[in-house]
Amino acid sequence: MENPKLYHPLILKHNKHPFHFFKDEHAQFVIQASNPICGDRFTLFLSLQDQVISQASFHGYGCAVSKAATSMLVERMYQKSIPKILQMTQEYLKMFESGNQIHDRELEIFKVAREFPGRTQCARLSWQKLSEEFQAWTQD
C-alpha cells in the first residue's frame, strides 16, 4: 500500500482538484463519455473560437483514474485546433496498445493502468469518446 502503483501523485491531485470541473451552460458542444459497465459518466463542455478550443470544462462521476484522465485532457485542449487534439488523443490511446513513449511525457503516468485488470478503460474513457467525436467531425 505504500506504493499505490496505479495512483501517481498527479492522478491523485487531479482527482481531488480536477481542472475546470463545472457545467458550462453556454458551451457550444456537449459530449458525453460513459462506461455502462462501471457507471462512470462524464460530460465535456467545449467552445470553439477561431478554429481553436477557447473554453473547456467537464462534470460528472467516475473513479480517480477516469476523472484525472478527463481533467488532464480538458487541461490540454485549450488553444488547440481539432486536428491537433485528434492527433494528441490518438497518440495517447495508442500508448495503451504499444506501450510506447509519447510526446507528452506527463500523460505516461496512465500507462501503468495496463497492468491492472479492467482499469485501462478508466484511463481511456473520455479520450476515446472525444477522439471518436472529433474524427467524425473531421470526416463530415
Binding site: 495512483y7 459497465i37 462501471c38 457507471g39 473513479c63 483514474v65
Partner: peptide
C-alpha cells in the same frame, strides 16, 4: 469510487467485487 477501493484492496491481496 468503488473501483479505486477494489484496485487498492487487490494490491493487498484482497479480491472484492465493485460495481
Amino acid at each position: 469510487h468503488p473501483h479505486d477501493v477494489a484496485t487498492l484492496l487487490d494490491q493487498e491481496g484482497i479480491a472484492v467485487r465493485a460495481g
